[in-house]
Structure formats: structure tokens, C-alpha cells
Design a binder for these strands. Sequence first.
RNA 1: GCCCUCAUCGUCUAUCGGUUAGGACAGGAGAUUCUCAAUCUUCAAAGCGGGGUUCGAUUCCCCGUGGGGGCACCA
Length: 465
Amino acid sequence: MSQVRVRFAPSPTGFFHIGSARTALFNWLYARHTGGAFILRIEDTDKERNSEAFLNLIYDSLSWLGLNWDEGPKVGKNGGGDFGPYRQSERGAIYQEYVARLVAAGRAYEKDGAIWFRLLGERFEVFDEHRKKTVTKVKGPPVVIEDRIRGRVERVEDEDFVIVRSDGNPVFHLVNVVDDITMNVTHIIRGEDHLSNTSKHVHLYEGFGVKPPEFAHIPLILKQNGPGKMSKRDQGALIEEYQRRGYLPEALVNFLCLLGWNPGDDREKMPIADIIRLFDLPGVNQSNARFDDKKLAHMNLAYLLELPADGFVALAREFFQRQPASAPVAAALAADAGYFREVMLLSQPKIKGTEELPAYTTYFFTEDFPVDAKVREKVFAKGDPKARLRDLVAALPTFDLTSDTAIEEAIKALAATHTVGFGDFQAPARLALSGTNVGPSITGMMRVLGRERVGQRIARLLAAG
RNA sequence: GCCCUCAUCGUCUAUCGGUUAGGACAGGAGAUUCUCAAUCUUCAAAGCGGGGUUCGAUUCCCCGUGGGGGCACCA
């Protein structure tokens, strides 16, 4: 059995989105599972819509997701593999040669300046109601595709089709097939939206006298609200967005695997090594899957929680460095990495995603933080918060602020002497220190902020009202 | 309009003819806690409809219905 060779063939005409990522992922998984080669081929024949920025986005997104390619642009020193070049814009001569072969064999002909592929079979004219014109149909046997995921699919291709436009540019179907032939691709794993095109492709293979590779058409990802498949314009569709929001690529990859595939049991969160081991084409579902950002967020949370301290701090640092409007944080980051670290570690078990970090931690980095009026009203409506704050300020100099447990003991002792509960101190103190009622443990906040700032903030709240 | 394809809780899915139809996310309730999360317990929630085949169909076949995709000198 020869080596498996799969490819991912995006065109740099737009943002890199979830659907493309999953197609790339399934190809990559299959290559890694079988010990085959994962090829990246850039389909940049559409000169009008191509852009270098989108091309770089493809490289960046794949790299971020951890989908390394064995052949393709940016691999090695010369060209990136033995079957290059890997950008269609550099393969014009190859296409010309293959078209010439078809013409020589009588399987292609020129008409209206374009070159058409000739189907075999009886030909007849018919008026097409839908297109309102007379077309030449060809009566031939159906193309039979033994798809590795959908099973047997039959389809009749009944009209000759253009393979080279009148401007000289070859069309997608032609270049796609020629590239797959010349790159020795063994398995074509692509979205179901290409299933109907496959009959054209099979005819082309036959025209070239080449046995078609295996086909595996994977289900599409549907947008979570409204009808249709997910496209670049849909909410949550862009890989770039998750990158910017500080999602963990491992979490996104794990989530994407579960859209249309499962290990056969109840396992969901699993290391990539396990996924590679268990992934196979027969395990891929046939039905389309709807994107669910809640489930993705949950997966991200699960990965976030088990991240080691250093990893989380590094992630937080990267995230804040990308944020444009976080001057106080940036300053703190530069001035006191230790303090930044303590603040972030306080937040790790509490937040659902890195993107919550700014709102969750601003008051650690500035004295100029807002006080939530509603929370304030609520806190002041119960018990005697001012008395508790005065007690706290008075006792503060005697507190051991080196550990959370010591602080907890101290507050409990203080509460006991005033015959009130821990909560009577917790709520007003939290309001004073953070201006709100959500956040890390009050003991952790006191420890990290330090005696001086804790005293000042409580005093400030007391003075204000 | 034509062609292809799919069909289990709201969502992602398990079940390869016989199950109290299981799990996860989301939702409800409770526990715990120093707020909020997390965590744990728990509740509610599904086989699109109609015909077959079979002792027995969610599972196999057919027809509907519904969803998705494709029908270019886009990729």
C-alpha cells in the first residue's frame, strides 16, 4: 500500500474561516493517522480576488491551529517538496501541457475562445427552460463514485464544460484535477459542497487516463442562527477572531473535531494524540452540523482550567499585549511582571475565556476604577457595612497578609469579636477594593493588592459615602 | 426548475434489528462556597410523516416532508 497523500487547497480570496479550518484539520488528522503526507496547495488562480494578506492569514491560521504541512509553500529551503510548485499561479505551464494532451486526444476542443472538455456519448440539442436557451446535451453513463464517507454516489454529467477560459486562464475543475494527479494525491477529503463537482472531476481523470483517487466528502458546518452553511461573514466564523480573543487553539481544534466526527464513545475532551490515533474516515458523520459557540466556549474553559500557571500567565500576557486600549496593564506588565502574574493567577479559575480578563482585572492596575452603583446600593442595604469597614481598617495593621488562609483566619476572628459573619466583611470589602460584586476570592484580592492599597481603598469608600 | 445529499433531545452526538434510547453543551432545581464562576447532585428534553420487510424496527427498503449543497468562461 502506497503512502497516503492528502491536501488542503484554499484560495487566498478571503478570511480563513471555521469551515476551511475543519477541512484542513480532517485532512491533517488523516495524514497523521496514516503516517501520510499533508500537502498545502494554494489555489490562487483568481487574480482579481487574491491578496497577499489573505495568503499570510492561511499560513498563520494553520500554524496557530498546529496543522503543520509536510509539503507546500514555506516548507524547507527549495519550493517545499518534490511535487511543486505549490501555488497554482506558478503552475501555468503544467496546465497548458495537460490541456494540450486532452486536445491531442480529441477530448477537448475550442469554442467561443474557450476550451471545452468533451463528454463521450450520443449528443442532442434541447431547449433548457431554466436557462432559456438551447444547449447541447450528451447522453452517457452515470459517473459512479465510491465515496469513503457517503458511500456509492451516482451522477450524470450531461454537458461539456469549460476547462480554459477565453482569457487563457484554466478553471478550477481542471487545475484541481491536474494538481491532484501531478502531486500524487491519494485521498481527496473536502466539503460536501464539492460532491456535485466530483462527476466533472472523474471525467477529467478518465480523460487523462488516470485512475481517480479516493474521495471523502465531509459534512458542512451550518451557521448557528438562520439558514445555510457557515460563511466568512457569519458570527463566530473567523479563526482570526478566536486567536484575537485569546482562545486556546487546542480547544478550538478539539471542538472542531467533534463537529462531524466522534471517537465512537462518550469522550469529548481529548488530547490531540488520542484524536490522531482514533480518527478515521468511516467515523466521519454524513449529516451537516450546526456550529455552537456555547459548546466551544465550554471546551475552551475546560482547557483553560487545566493550563499550568506559567502557561496561563503567558497566554494572558500575549492577550494583553495585543489589546490596544490597556495602557495601565501594559505599564504594569513592564514594571512588575510578578504582580501581573499574581493578578492573573487569581483570575484563572474564575474566568470563562481570556477575553474576560480586562474587565475582570482592571481594578488591580489602577486606582481609577468605577464603582457599580447598583452593587453599592445592595451592599449598603444590608447590615452595617460602614462599621465593618471601619473594623477592617482598624484591624488591618495586625493582619498577616502573606497567605489567603491567614487572611481568612484573621477576618473570621474579627467577625467573631463583633458577632457577625465572614460575609458581613466580604461584601463591603469587595465593593471597596474592586467596585463590584464579582471577582476572585476576597482574601486573594487583599493579599495581592497589599496592605497599603487595601487600607486606602476602604478609606476612600468610607469617605465617599 | 434540474441533479446530488442528509434526517435521534433546542444544539453536537452514541446505538452497526431486541436498550428504561446513553453522553455532552445550553436550560431548570439543589448542594457547596466569601461574591461570581468552577465543581458535585438532580430534573426536563429526541427517533419527521406514511407505507413496507421482519417475530421484532430509531436501525433495512420505498414514497412523502423538511434541511443542506450543486447546477458559471468563481474557487
